[in-house]
Amino acid sequence: MAKHEVTMTINGQSVTAEVDSRLLLVHFIRENLDMTGTHIGCDTSNCGACTILLDGKSVKACTYLTVRADGAEITTIEGLAPEGTNHPLQQAFHDQHGLHCGFCTPGMIMRSVDLLKNNPNPTEEEIRWGISGNLCRCTGYNNIVKSVQQAAKEMAKEKEATV
């Protein structure tokens, strides 16, 4: 089986690699690039633990071939905010106790970035449906909803400040 050369931007850095056709993007990120913040929680694309941003959209990296990400711009949890700082969602998950074991958290946050981009002021119902492809077994979701609400407010403020 032939290898394929791929080049993509991950968290602002250009990466080139030779990969097998079947290499799943989640394994490329975790094993080839040693960025282990993106997790794996299922075999059937149901849990969302592997969610990343691909060209700005939330994508389940377990259901995406690395070869297909050639030329793409990818953001993982490690690259969401500059080292030592928090994205408003990261801050909100901390403030609102939106995480327990932390395993679902990177995926949950990456999904929420996309959610807030498309809907900066979501209702509780819209948040719940919006994160419905991401399972959390620990938190019961109440505080995740609150976290997204807090981040939405913060981001609206930030936006206002920059206008």
Partner: peptide, 12 residues
């Protein structure tokens, strides 16, 4: 579409 899969799946 609202009832199909979930938003990340629908993105692709």
């Amino acid at each position: 579409i609202w009832l199909t899969a979930d938003p990340s799946v629908r993105n692709v």
